[in-house]
Design a protein around this nucleic acid. Structure first.
Lengths: 160, 160
DNA sequence: GTCGCTGCAAAGTCTTTGCAGAGAG
DNA sequence: CTCTCTGCAAAGACTTTGCAGCGAC
């Protein structure tokens, strides 16, 4: 249903993202380069949470002509993270994964078999967290929550 | 209030821990060494969540005669983690922190200013998590939650 | 005694940094 | 033109591994 609508929405959202990024760069006297654009685009297009390495591979695949270096990926991710345009996740495994921070807030549920990450939001938990921080005298800034388990698809595989 | 009682309780708990550890080692044909004992003891005595490096420093301070190598600390932490006697935490910052897993389940609230970590448990959140996993078709195994904010003490410092 | 354990140092990962040429503004 | 970016390679931080002697059992 509504694949045309979805596409339109996504395009609009990406344009906004891109324009935010350009403003951010301009405000800081930084330059808008093809590499930076491609990195933002890949982060946007990917449904996955990407590691610097997987992002780098993706870019080399889609834009081999650019010959983008991994150092540029790291530098751009830092830049985006500092500006709070992307968020980094570090769940147990070594190395961080990145996701666009422009998305709405959500938490993660991670499959311990295949490493797949899904997202969810639960209002009840969200409100409870605020209360807990208050009770402990903290000024809450952010929070994150992860549930670990076995996803439907891995459960099916295991039964075979 | 009850410092004697506290001490007794802690001693009993530590003895249990130590005996669990010894059993674990025996069952796997591994040896109980002074280094391994000291690492477990330091993990138990410390209220902090320790990095391999801070644990190593602590050991060198308290038991300089042992001259324990950092490699042994890493090896023992892996061993303890595999046996689920300790849990590793990796919150944004690079490097993992470890805590004894024998403690009751709890979540963490982390000060973004000073890095201090406090613990808490909330039944409402706990039960909500189970429900969410079910709804998403996951077989829940574990979960973890972190709240980030500014702790009371850093708030006070900032007002000065 | 045997066989696992330890410290040391070397080797691996992952990430950051210095530099000279390339490119955006 | 200027000054930032980029790719490359070297350097760093953190962790793991190989090895020869040591020590628990």
């Amino acid at each position: 249903m509504g694949s045309h609508t979805d596409f339109t929405e996504r395009t609009i959202a990406y344009n906004k993202l891109l324009s935010d990024f350009k403003h951010l760069l301009k405000e800081n006297g930084l330059k808008f380069t093809i590499q930076r654009e491609v990195i933002l685009e890949m982060l946007y297009r990917s449904d996955e949470h990407l590691t610097p390495e997987s992002l780098h591979h993706l870019i080399q695949e889609k834009h081999p002509d650019l010959n983008t270096g991994i150092a540029t990926v790291y530098r751009t991710l830092s830049l985006l993270e500092d500006s709070e345009m992307v968020t980094s996740l570090s769940f147990g495994a070594q190395g961080k994964k990145y996701e666009l921070g422009a998305k709405d807030h959500h938490d993660h549920i991670i499959c311990t078999q295949c490493g797949a990450i899904s997202e969810f939001v639960d209002d009840e938990i969200e409100s409870r967290q605020k209360k807990i921080a208050e009770e402990l005298g903290f000024l809450m800034q952010e929070h994150s929550m992860q549930i670990y388990g076995i996803c439907q698809s891995c459960q099916t595989k295991m039964k075979k």
